[in-house]
Design a protein around this nucleic acid. Structure first.
Lengths: 179, 179
DNA sequence: GAAGATTGACGGATCAATCTTT
DNA sequence: AAAGATTGATCCGTCAATCTTC
């Protein structure tokens, strides 16, 4: 750690660590903005909506439990509820109560939803190619993916169970916004 | 491009391209969520607020024009206005009208803001290390950064001027949400 | 009129509380 | 009581319109 006087100041040692991180942040922001813009402009779908449709299409019978969907699109349960609300309003998805567990709800892709997804996928795949895949030398792509997978895994939310070890002593809730 | 029937379905050729991209998405989501949580819990700052403070601290005299700040924290102008509103309310930043151009406003770090940033930077740097830097083999880190830089650059917003070439024929505004 | 910043209206996400079914 | 889903309150961001200064 740098001494307090230079922490976060340009030219400090911190820059070595912060450089790759900030590049990661901007890359993400730029690429997702592009993909989102293009999907909206050409198909009236946000990136999140597109990914939800895609996840449902992946699922067997093109139907998926709400909580499963939440995990896969990296949203909270309530976030998914509202997202599906929108897709239902657009008739791309239907709600269906789960057969063997009446607590559950499932999202089912409609024919229209499948069609819309199919159209949008051209735009999306083109975008992913243009802004991501084609930019990375073929030889680096595999390494990139495994590196990102390890990072993703390391920071993944603790999945229930008997709380993982080494919480690195983070003090939760010790400071509140003074307002 | 896969044939329509298999587009976006598991096992299709698309997965080859989509794999790295989805890994990128989840890595970003997981890591930023962690960093944000820890900053909030330990210092009552969101990640965006932290980065704004950091950018102001980087700037000469610890003061920065609003529009400059917007570029650096990847937010819209109005987004930055509101972000600074919050920081001003917490007395971490002060607004100051620009000397040589009275249209402009500058955000200036207060002593309290500098102190808060200094404290928070320990948490942030620890997090970046734990969830990002230390996870990547030293030998890969440089390659990762340059790869991400190229991606970021490729997708970067067209910076004004006489519109760039090869818009890849995207049709803007051709489809609207049907509601 | 154009540029910098702010404001109003709104979109879209979260958390905490609630309802239903197990 | 616990789990799945939804709802209400709220937070944080954007866009379009506006105000001020150049």
């Amino acid at each position: 750690m740098s001494p307090p006087e230079t922490a976060g100041r340009p030219g400090g040692r911190d820059d070595v660590r912060l450089g790759p991180w900030r590049t990661f942040l901007t890359a993400h922001a730029h690429v997702t903005r592009r993909l989102d813009e293009e999907l909206r402009a050409e198909h009236g779908l946000s990136l999140a909506e597109y990914e939800a449709l895609l996840q449902i299409a992946y699922a067997p019978n093109r139907r998926l439990r709400m909580s499963q969907l939440a995990e896969r699109v990296l949203l909270s349960r309530s976030g998914v509820t509202r997202l599906i609300d929108r897709l239902v309003a657009d008739a791309l998805v239907e709600r269906s109560s789960c057969s063997e567990d009446a607590r559950g709800a499932e999202a089912v892709l409609t024919a229209g939803g499948m069609e819309r997804l199919r159209e949008a996928s051209r735009t999306h795949l083109r975008g992913v190619d243009e802004y991501f895949v084609s930019v990375v030398p073929q030889s680096d792509l595999e390494m990139l993916e495994t590196t990102l997978a390890v990072i993703s895994d390391r920071a993944a939310p603790r999945t229930g169970q008997h709380e993982r070890c080494s919480q690195s002593g983070s003090v939760r809730g010790s400071v509140q916004r003074t307002r």
